[in-house]
Write a protein that binds this DNA or RNA. Structure first.
Lengths: 112, 112
DNA sequence: CACTTATGATCCATACATAGATCATAAAAT
DNA sequence: ATTTTATGATCTATGTATGGATCATAAGTG
């Protein structure tokens, strides 16, 4: 066997994705959508939707967000999260920051 | 050319991912982290980090969330979002819902 | 009850995301 | 100024995520 790569993720990532997946699953059932329906509307396969609803970390973020939007889960809408409020100035903030990060190569020459 | 598949995404998905990517980029620079550093810590390539910071929808959600955690972007932490509050009962909620969604196959037989 | 449909799981083939390298430019340091 | 380092872009090879099918079971329907 050609030794497949096993990526490891932090707990917080697992939890976050698990959370989203549960939100999606609940929302879909509340709205009485069939897995097949949602998959078609999202332009993905039913199999992928299954993995998304299971919290598979390897699914593309686009697919996950697309499904979330379809079943009505507001992840980053202004009403749903405070995140959006901080965002408004993010582009400007980015412009002000230095373009690249340079590390000190020499140790600080503390003379004492 | 073997006609590559072009997936289409809704505006909201684009915006959400774009938002996250900007948050990540700003956070990384504020903390003076090199792209190389962050990539290594996340266990991904610098190239992938570039795509993440660009808002590429095809990156895996695990990689994106991992990087976000490393640079200190709180996407779904209790303090950062109201989402977490709704979540607490999500598992119970899921348990109460019907296990599968069945569609009406016959049209409602409205007799008039 | 019988019947239908949804879901979950598994397998395979292939399109594609990713790692890794290289190069050019830009920005910071000295 | 020179030198060093970070970033952005591009290319290739390969591991793998995804689509599509199938099957078994569960869960509604009538």
């Amino acid at each position: 066997m050609p030794t497949s790569k096993v990526r490891t993720y932090s707990l917080i990532s697992h939890e976050a994705v698990h959370l989203i997946s549960n939100l999606i699953k609940v929302a879909r059932k509340e709205r009485q959508y069939t897995a097949q329906e949602v998959a078609e509307r999202a332009g993905i396969s039913r199999g992928l939707l299954q993995r998304i609803e299971k919290g598979d970390l390897k699914c593309s973020i686009g697919a996950v967000f697309e499904v979330a939007a379809i079943v009505g889960v507001k992840l980053f809408d202004a009403e749903a999260t405070t995140l959006m409020k901080h965002i408004l100035h993010i582009e400007e903030k980015l412009a002000l920051l230095p373009k690249s990060v340079h590390k000190r190569t020499k140790v600080v020459d503390d003379d004492f």
